[in-house]
């Protein structure tokens, strides 16, 4: 009755609310944790100590190099047709402006195609992208590629409508990628409201001028660590189920949702198993990744270091789309493995979270999945996730202890049962 015991302890028993309370203490103490920052170093040190205090096994830090981008002071002001402050968040990896800033006329476009069709107008201007929010995966292209696409047509900077499904004049940051051979121009996100304002002004033929100041600096890569702890398997200790979330965040809000919740339910999974005196046949390994926001930097180095052991990697699990009320699990693997995972999900009938969906997702586990290892990701009611994502709104206030209890129960039952089956998942 292991599954029922886990559910009872996580949702109704003495461990209820523990992951929430641990997370609150952590983010209230440390704050946000951008790659290369002192806060991230403190966070890793904090977790290293906390996991040891929790009496987990093989607590260790695995050294990696991560980007170190610093935002600096930044501001934007619409000068014409009237003065208006624009709330902005510079994008990770962006170059800064000259000290005096950049003052230029604006061209507003709603798509890359429109930018191409109006390329003659864009030279020497600031490109404002007012792309509609379709889905995160589709719309985020404007954030990651917007600067280089604008630079190709001679723009001097780009301002991109935040990738947000709801806005209260809140800018959302994120990583952006410069293309090789294309000039690097400053790039930031503006709010949905300001993007739409400038689009309306522009559609009326009104000339818009914006002053942009960004003090962003790219430092040399910094030392960082993936944080690891285990419950060592009793029969096949060399075989591993990974449960994971990422410890780094953006430099706004508290990083409580992205991905504090995912990291802390993953820690909770090991705590629950330990509390119940369970010892699966295989090793359950907690990995708290670093440098995820810059493109899975810590996890890619982990993969390179450990891929020689891929034969023993049973299942890789990642929670990185919030810990709202869970609705099931996403899974990528062979049909035979899916049948087994469907059976495992039935064990969660007492809390009515039994659905298995397709297509596990998660930057940090993608390297393993692409190499054929079965992968699973927590699916929750993420309808509000992109309201807060990469914004000052990503705070503890978004989190809910009851939802986290349920997430922890789902996470733990799946990790434990898969790790304890007599055989590894087919692949």
């Amino acid at each position: 009755d292991a599954a029922k015991s886990i559910i009872d302890l996580a949702v109704y028993g003495s461990a209820q609310n523990r992951s929430y309370e641990r997370l609150a203490l952590f983010v209230d103490t440390i704050g946000n944790r951008v790659s290369g920052s002192d806060n991230l170093k403190k966070a890793i040190k904090y977790m290293y100590s906390a996991l040891q205090d929790d009496k987990l096994q093989n607590v260790s830090l695995e050294s990696v190099k991560v980007p170190h981008w610093e935002r600096g002071k930044e501001s934007a002001m619409m000068l014409q047709p009237r003065q208006k402050n624009l709330a902005i968040l510079g994008l990770g990896g962006s170059v800064g402006t000259p000290p005096e800033g950049i003052s230029a006329e604006v061209i507003v476009v709603s798509s890359f195609a429109e930018l191409q069709s109006r390329e003659q107008e864009a030279k020497g201007k600031i490109v404002v992208y007012n792309q509609p929010y379709v889905s995160y995966g589709e719309t985020v292209q404007y954030r990651s590629r917007g600067a280089s696409e604008a630079a190709k047509v001679g723009a001097v900077a780009s301002l991109i409508r935040s990738v947000a499904s709801l806005s209260i004049n809140s800018p959302h940051t994120g990583w952006q990628d410069y293309q090789n051979g294309v000039p690097k121009i400053p790039t930031a996100c503006i709010t949905v409201e300001d993007a739409e304002l400038m689009a309306r002004l522009s559609s009326r033929g009104v000339k818009i001028v914006v002053q942009l100041n960004m003090g962003a600096v790219q430092h040399p890569d910094a030392d960082s660590f993936n944080t690891v702890a285990e419950i060592v398997g009793s029969k096949y200790p060399e075989q591993v189920v990974i449960v994971s979330g990422h410890l780094d965040s953006w430099d706004v809000g508290q990083g409580a949702m992205d991905d504090g919740g995912g990291a802390f339910i993953s820690w909770e999974a090991l705590s629950l198993i330990r509390d119940l005196g369970l010892r699966p046949k295989r090793t359950i390994r907690l990995v708290l990744w670093t440098g995820e926001e810059e493109g899975g930097v810590g996890s890619s180095q982990y993969y390179e270091r450990h891929k020689k052991d891929i034969r023993n990697m049973d299942l890789v699990m990642e929670s990185d789309i919030g810990t709202f009320m869970p609705v099931g699990m996403q899974f990528s693997g062979k049909p035979e493995a899916r049948v087994i995972m469907s059976e495992v999900m039935k064990l969660l009938a007492p809390i009515n979270i039994t659905k298995l969906y397709d297509n596990a997702e998660g930057t940090d586990i993608s390297f393993w999945m692409q190499a054929g290892v079965p992968g699973a990701s927590l699916l929750d009611d993420a309808s509000r996730y992109f309201w807060f994502h990469h914004s000052e709104g990503d705070t503890m206030t978004v989190q809910n202890p009851i939802w986290m209890n349920h997430c922890a129960a789902v996470w733990t039952v799946v990790a434990y049962v898969v790790a304890d089956l007599e055989e590894m998942l087919p692949r």
Binding site: D1, A2, A3, K4, K334, E336, V339, I340, E343, V344, K346, L347, V413, V417, D420, L421, E422, E423, P426, R427
Partner: peptide, 23 residues
């Protein structure tokens, strides 16, 4: 029958029974 990389239906049934044992 077992395919080279697959799992036989009999084996799958046995694993399903094993999973059910964790209720």
């Amino acid at each position: 029958t077992d395919s080279q990389h697959g799992v036989s239906s009999r084996k799958l049934e046995r694993i399903k029974e094993e999973v059910a044992g964790y209720k």
